[in-house]
Design a protein around this nucleic acid. Structure first.
Ligand SMILES: [Mn+2]
Ligand SMILES: [Mn+2]
Ligand SMILES: [Zn+2]
Ligand SMILES: [Zn+2]
Lengths: 152, 152
DNA sequence: TTTCTAATTGGAATTATTCTAGGTTTTGAC
DNA sequence: GTCAAAACCTAGAATAATTCCAATTAGAAA
């Protein structure tokens, strides 16, 4: 039985995207990508490592960092920078911004309307991409004030 | 001769802002704030430390971190998170966003038009503040391609 | 299949930041 | 002014996140 790419868990592109970027398809890269697609909660590298180890006990943290880097390089994953704590990773490549809940530390994708228009750049500045961070309180934490687990 | 507050280098508010936040005015906090106002290039904590030491050789790095924290707490300084490398500090409290030059690593203030409108939030999300990062190439690096010093 | 090179691995190293414990300064009550 | 309490500063240790390194393994082109 030939393995068929399942876009639900693996995404349709991994093998192609890697090779067109001059990178190889490896078990570890598949596993790291699978982990990211399975639970889209913007895990840290260390969280990805813990989840990946469940099915691949010998994978190393250094490899997880390498794989995440490869996935970012070939355009399948975003590297997200939440200020405090380690950076996080997101397999949603649609244009969106990130909401950081100050009560529970959760990270949420927020749609970013296509008509954003951007910010007018002063002469000479060449903007390649925008990253919008929104800090506040998520629905769950807003509903039960004082009960949000502190971030970290 | 009574010392007069010089708003060019010290800003008009340090003493007041600290005390209204329940914090004390100290030599070290003055010095750290002075350093930030003198060269507004978004230095890292370590860069602030090096600059502050020139006039106050006994100041410690831990104190610089503490002072920066106090200045952020009392609303005189912004804590800026550029993804890679250490976080940076900015005494410009007007609404603005940050341009990160991918060639030289420089950080620049970009005015953020007042009519930005914000991003429409899904039900339940309470947005407290926005942070916009723009990545690209600054005027200097755009003018001499290939000559921008690599960031770091 | 062979060969070449990219990728993986564990551990050490580096970087950025926070913590700790002890000494100093400021503040405010007396 | 004197004194105690609280805030602050300091050096160095500790922690957290990430990168580097040298040796092995494994993908894929020929
Ligand atoms: Mn996301
Ligand atoms: Mn700024
Ligand atoms: Zn929350
Ligand atoms: Zn530049």
């Amino acid at each position: 039985m030939k393995a068929v790419e399942n876009s639900k868990t693996r995404g349709p592109l991994l093998s192609e995207r890697l090779t067109t970027s001059g990178l190889r398809l490896t078990r570890q890269r598949e596993q790291v990508y699978r982990v990211l697609l399975q639970k889209r909660d913007h895990p840290t590298a260390d969280e990805v490592f813990l989840r990946a180890k469940r099915q691949m006990p010998d994978i190393s943290l250094a490899t997880v960092y390498n794989c995440l880097d490869a996935l970012v390089q070939c355009g399948l994953v975003r590297h997200v920078h939440p200020g405090r704590g380690g950076s996080r990773f997101c397999p949603n490549m649609r244009e969106h911004c990130h909401f950081y809940c100050e009560a529970c530390g959760g990270v949420f994708d927020i749609d970013w309307p296509a008509d954003h228009g951007g910010v007018p750049m002063p002469k000479g500045f060449e903007a390649k991409r925008y990253e919008i961070a929104i800090r506040g309180v998520c629905p769950d934490c807003g509903a039960r004030p004082g009960h949000g687990a502190p971030p970290g």
